[in-house]
Every structure is written in C-alpha cells, then in structure tokens.
Design a protein around this nucleic acid. Structure first.
Lengths: 213, 213
DNA sequence: CGGGATCCCTTAGGATACTG
DNA sequence: CAGTATCCTAAGGGATCCCG
C-alpha cells in the first residue's frame, strides 16, 4: 500500500486520499468558478509554490477530477463532471470555516474566485425566490463581481455591468453577511460604500446572502 | 504569518487551516459517532502514528473543535458544538469518496466508526419515512452494528440486539448500497449472509441506505 | 494498561532560480 | 506563459520507550 494511503475501505478516507493534500481543494475551489489557465490559478493562490501547483494539477488529473484542455495555443484546466461534484464539499467547508474567520489580517488577500464561492455559499435560494430579481456590482477588495439574482438562481461573473446597486467593501463585508452589522450601519460606518444605484438595496443583498456566525 | 497558513481571507482556507492536516478529519469522523478515548481513536485509525494522533488532538483542542474531558480516571475526547458542525463536511466528503472507492483491497480494514458514518451518509430520511420502523443488525467485517430506523430517524450503535433482520457482509456491501447488486442477488451470491430474521427485509435496507455510484 | 513522549529517518512541501 | 530543477525545511511515518 502506498505510504500516504489511510488503509481503510471508507468513502471519507478515499476522498481525502484524492483531495486531502494541501492546496488541492483550493485549486478545485477556483475551478468551480470556471476553467482557468495555469497562470490564473497561480494568481488566485498567491502563496502556492509553482512546483506544488504543477504537482497538484498532475495529481488531480490522474484522479479524474480535472482535465487539461489545449485551447488555441494555451492550456486550460477544467473540472470533470466528477470534479464538479465536489461543490457540496467546498460549500460545506466554506460555511463551516466562515464562522472561524475572525478579523481580517493585513497579510490576508481577497481573490475574485474565493469571493465568488463565498457568495455561492452564503446564497439563500428560498429567500431570493421571494424577492424581485436584482443585480449588484460588488467591489470586494481587488475583486469586482457582477452578481445577478433572479428567483432562486444566482450568477456571479467577473467585471462590471448594469446593476441596481453597485457598492464597494473590504473584508469587513463578512460582518454584513453574518448579520453582525446591519446594512444601514454598514453604510453609515463606511464599511460599505455605495457607488451607484439604490443604497437601500443593500438590505436585500444582506437578506439574500447570509451565513450565521 | 504562520508558514502553513494560506494567506487568504476566505472560509474555505480557514477551514483547511483548522482541519486540513492529514488525519484531522478522520479523528473528527470517529468522534462524530461518539466520545472516544485515546486508545479507541488509535484503534479506529490503525495506521496513525501515536505522536501524530497526540499532535492532532492538541491542534483540534486548540481550535475549539474537540474537548478533553477527564472522566473517572480516564480521559475522554469529544466534539464541541462547533466540532459537531463538521458533520455536513464529513458526510459530503464520504458521499463523494464513495464513488471512487473501487474494489476493496486486502490491506484495507473496516472500522465500526467509519461504517457507522457511512450508513449515516447513505441514509435517505425521506425514503425511510415512508417505510415501517425497522431494526437491523449488520455484521460488517469486524464491526457489529445495531441499526434502528424509525421514520426519518436513524440510530446506529455498536453491538447486537433485537432486530427484524440480522445479516453479515464484507466490504462488498458497497455494491448493495450503490444499487450495483440487487438484494436477492446479494444473498444468492453470498455477498450478504442472512443470520436471523426476514431476509426479504434486505430489500428495505437497500432502499433506506443508498448512494449513487 | 492507558496516554502519551522521544528518537530517527523519509518525504512532502516551501523558496527560488531557471528553461522551452 | 507554463511549467522544471534544485535545494532546504519541516511534517509525517515507524519503532520504541516512559510515566502515572
């Protein structure tokens, strides 16, 4: 038996053998947002050494979790259907870890893909279904995301666009999502800055995206 | 920043910093079944070195995931409420890994706690709710489990007891759970051996516990 | 005997430089 | 841009030992 195997006939151990190595699930997290190139993955994981990223991509490919697709002179990595089935795992981990995030620290960065997955984690379809379709532009640190909510459907894409509300916020957006900070207080204290549109829609945003802390 | 931190302000990275180390989630998996002593944990994870188990218990305690409780001359480890909230993560990992388990290998063991969690993973409350209350005794390798299903409620405990059906099976029980092997075929081929009670209830068992493969 | 601690060695992972 | 190559540190593995 390979030394790094757990030696049990069990689904959990098998899963950890496939995606339990350091960085593996973070690569999956970013690929859940969409196909990515090597350099994009490296940019989304600033602290991953290049050799480790290369090794993880090899491992994940060998495990049938990702695919390496040559596309017009560049190489794209994307999840296989089986890899995509890791979404519940990543969302569950994100929801659990959310509660232990604490205060943001100076050296901690925010990446567009991690914020996209965080929004997916916090999304409450049943709440959204009862609200009018709404689109937001959220500038979260360096990540500018166009967030479209229509009924129980959520779509998050990078970049700007037409929106009912555009706002900017830093890591403290977490306190809005957790309900620790009321929407009007978030604006009053400058945690959230309204850029365009109806600032009162931040309330709807906070209802739509919520995670207990 | 600690070298082993990921440097991102993100729920997933935070979760992986707390339970992403090797063996950590397996300790949690076993503690989800119930409080355990050091020796019981070691027995449930035959390949974990003793120093690693000790280190993990320290880390998990420092993270507020487990508690160390002295109880009448012995020490018991148990999950805190926050640790218990990892159950969805472990179940999601188990369901995903189930599909990649493949054929059992000689050196792979089955432990009572991993089988208990596997049954919880495969349990379908909505199916069970429509069926009469049923109790089973399942001898799965070295693990003897008393499985009581009552409506949408599932209870799995170690040991024997009164049951509508008692059966023995090896790792190939997986093929029954996945639907790859029909209940009557499982009995006919000897994958499942009926020990006591109504063998026809194996069909109900397979409906109640199911995971797609 | 339960609950670890210590030792030594192997290997994964981190930092950095380099290449097709 | 998409990775390799190299060197080094630290985590993990295996065995043994210890202590109340």
């Amino acid at each position: 038996m390979a030394a790094r195997e757990y030696g049990q006939y069990c689904g959990v151990t098998r899963a950890l053998e496939l995606v339990g190595e350091r960085w593996s699930l973070l690569v999956v997290r970013d690929l859940l947002v969409g196909p990515r190139r090597y350099g994009e993955l490296a940019a989304g994981l600033p602290r991953i050494p290049s050799n480790i990223l290369a090794a993880r991509l090899k491992d994940l490919q060998a495990a049938g979790i990702i695919r390496r697709v040559p596309r017009s002179r560049v190489i794209i990595y994307e999840l296989t259907p089986y890899g995509h089935e890791l979404e519940p795992v990543v969302l569950a981990l994100g929801a659990w870890g959310f509660k232990a995030m604490g205060e943001p620290r100076e050296e901690q960065v925010i990446t567009p893909d991690s914020m996209t997955m965080a929004l997916r984690t916090a999304f409450r379809p049943q709440v959204a279904a009862a609200l009018p379709a709404t689109s937001y532009v959220a500038q979260l640190g360096p990540a500018e995301l166009l967030v479209r909510v229509d009924g129980a459907r959520l779509e998050v894409t990078r970049g700007d666009g037409p929106a009912d509300l555009a706002f900017a916020a830093g890591p403290d957006i977490r306190r809005l999502i957790s309900g620790e900070l009321a929407p009007d207080r978030a604006i009053a204290t400058g945690v959230v800055e309204v850029l365009r549109g109806r600032g009162d829609l931040l309330d709807r945003f906070a209802s739509t995206f919520h995670l207990a802390a």
